[in-house]
Nucleic acid binder design. Structure first.
Length: 607
DNA sequence: AAATTTTTCG
């Protein structure tokens, strides 16, 4: 019978099964049914699966444990969770395999609450003993729900039983703690360090955990440690590391990783080459990204999406649109994410008409119902272009409920176009929807200040302080000869601090001669007022640019990365500096790239 | 069985 599911197509094994059942001299047993169920699962033939299930019922095999687990598993594969649950509920006895099938089945169908609930039933109400697979099966659900307390209970259960000796269980805990946020990375690392027999997967889980939580330096140093160990990176390790490089924006590091895989089999991994394209795009080399893209023998939808969003990131809206039409001709079907990438590119290039057409055609021509993310993109397109009232009407007419991200987008547009009145309405809305967000507190307080309603401003600010809400400080990175230098606002810690500030004074003199007046954005910046005064002249990007001017030969391109969005005044100043010093300055901020040359920015002052 | 590439706003 074993040959049924291996021999020929699953469909033929199913008809063979029917034939066998009808013949009188051969009686199918529960194994026969188990194989037939696996065959139906493998063939994704739900109808056939139901037929076999029905026949098993008639023949009285439905209470067999192994068969039961297979039937439950099959229904989960078809996303028929109700049927799976019914079969499970009707089983007269249950073993760990059956329970584990329920746990992972719910998990695979993204029903994490149900998965955790079944685990609780198993522990509290059942006499079945759990095993290491049980713990591993429930951990992804616990991680997804960020149920840290339950995770810790499971951790102690694992230590009390023998389960903790399995490396894959430890790996599950590493990814659990990683998903619970940055501060749990210490626990993850502890699990990793204490593993007596590490595996490639535990290394990968640890590196990926660092990357997910933005701890890219940590990720890279662990990767270097791994290179000294007995383990060699696989394509998964490489994609994790490339995503760290992309986050950091350090081209030299990304090129180094590219060098490691050049000429190896990894290059043929679609994951690796797509990650390389993303890395080059995010590190500023859009041309190199395109070169790799053109070299790829095979591309999937993610590859296309990466290239489209790369163009978007650089403000190359027309390139994004033309590669999108190439995608349509390539035979790779666009996905919902593709439309997000295209809309994103339209908004960063000011292509209102094109974006509007795209939004409509995705619905009417491609049959994708727009999600709240697509609506947010559309609000961004309208808002950035200055159509604030249209954007507001668009939000009000949305068939899905507007979440904070949609209002946040409109708020960004209010800031660009200095619409204080609308900003006030929107901030109140945001404050109401998400009272734990620092940004909204500071913003609302600044808006009250602008209205000269100081008592109200103070109240909002105090509320934020009381809740210990703090905001990430702005910082900028510049690489000189492969060495990274990081600056914060008003930073005095750099060894060449004196020369840097002198350079800034010198530049400011020249800029004023050219008619420059500092622009301070009232109220619409979510920065504390005192901080704003302190920082305005010495924002981290200016320090980094000044250092770049000192530390490199005349004419060298200056490339910097900032963790926040570049402010209006710094944008103006950078344009002027590019003109005065005759340098190309490339700035990657939290949102996109700006290429400054001869006093003009590639974003067309549109960001 | 665990670990990969794309995704608005901030």
């Amino acid at each position: 019978m074993g040959g049924f599911s291996n021999n020929g197509s699953p469909h033929s094994s199913l008809s063979l099964f029917s034939h066998l059942r009808k013949s009188t001299n051969l009686v199918p047993n529960s194994s026969t049914y188990t194989y037939a169920i696996s065959a139906a699962s493998g063939a994704r033939d739900e109808r056939a699966g139901r037929v076999v299930h029905g026949q098993a019922l008639v023949d009285g095999f439905d209470s067999e444990l192994r068969l039961g687990s297979n039937i439950v598993n099959m229904y989960f594969k078809f996303s028929r969770v109700g049927d799976a649950r019914n079969v499970f509920d009707r089983m007269p006895e249950r073993d760990s395999v059956l329970w584990n099938t329920m746990l992972s089945g719910y998990g695979e169908n993204e029903m994490y609450e149900e998965s955790v609930q079944v685990f609780r039933e198993l522990i509290n109400e059942s006499s079945t003993r759990f095993d290491s697979t049980t713990l591993l099966s429930v951990l992804p659900a616990v991680a997804e729900l960020q149920e840290l307390r339950l995770g810790m209970v499971i951790h102690s259960l694992a230590m009390k039983t023998g389960c903790y000796s399995h490396d894959f269980v430890r790996t599950g805990f590493i990814s659990l703690y990683s998903k619970c946020g940055k501060i749990e990375m210490e626990s993850a690392r502890k699990v990793f360090d204490e593993s007596p027999h590490k595996s490639l997967t535990s290394w990968n889980a640890m590196i990926s955990g660092y990357t997910q939580n933005g701890l890219t330096e940590d990720a890279i140093s662990l990767f270097r440690e791994m290179q000294k160990s007995e383990f060699s990176p696989n394509p998964i390790t490489i994609t994790c590391i490339l995503s760290a490089c992309a986050q950091l924006g350090t081209l030299s590091l990304g090129k180094w990783v590219h060098g490691l895989v050049r000429g190896t089999d990894f290059e043929s991994s679609i994951y690796v080459s797509t990650a390389l394209i993303g890395m080059y795009a995010k590190c500023g080399s859009i041309a190199e990204a395109r070169r790799l893209f053109d070299l790829m023998p095979k591309r999937n939808e993610v590859t296309w999406n990466t290239m489209i969003s790369g163009y978007g990131l650089h403000g190359h809206g027309q390139d994004a649109l033309s590669i999108f039409s190439e995608m349509l001709n390539s035979g790779v079907a666009p996905t919902q994410v593709t439309f997000l990438c295209v809309l994103y590119a339209c908004s960063h290039a000011g292509l209102v008409k094109e974006g509007d057409d795209m939004f409509n055609s995705m619905d009417h021509r491609y049959g994708f119902e727009p999600s709240v993310k697509h609506y947010a993109c559309m609000v961004d397109i309208l808002g950035r272009a200055g159509h604030l009232q249209r954007a507001l009407q668009f939000i009000e007419a949305m068939p899905v409920e507007a979440d904070p991200s949609v209002w946040q987008t409109l708020l960004g547009a209010c800031r660009i176009h200095k619409d204080t009145n609308l900003a006030r309405t929107v901030s109140e809305k945001l404050f109401e929807l998400d009272p734990d967000n620092v940004g909204y507190h500071v913003l609302l307080s600044n808006i009250h200040s602008a209205d000269r309603n100081y008592p109200q401003a103070a109240t909002v600010r105090q509320a934020a302080k009381k809740r210990k809400l703090t905001k990430a400080p702005g910082c900028t990175l510049i690489e000189i000869g492969g060495t990274p230098h990081v600056f914060t606002s008003g930073d005095k810690s750099h060894p060449q601090v004196k020369a840097i500030y002198e350079k800034l004074e010198e530049l400011e003199g020249k800029m004023r001669e050219a008619g420059y007046q500092p622009e301070t954005e009232l109220a619409l910046h979510d920065v504390e007022e005192e901080e704003r005064e302190l920082m305005v002249k010495f924002h981290s990007e200016r320090l980094a640019i000044a250092f770049g001017l000192i530390a490199t030969e005349p004419g060298t391109e200056i490339r910097i990365i900032k963790n926040l969005r570049v402010c209006l005044d710094c944008h103006t100043v950078t344009k002027l500096i590019s003109e005065i010093t005759e340098r190309v300055i490339v700035v990657r901020d939290a949102n996109r790239f700006h290429h400054f040359r001869d006093g003009v920015c590639s974003c067309g002052d549109y960001w």
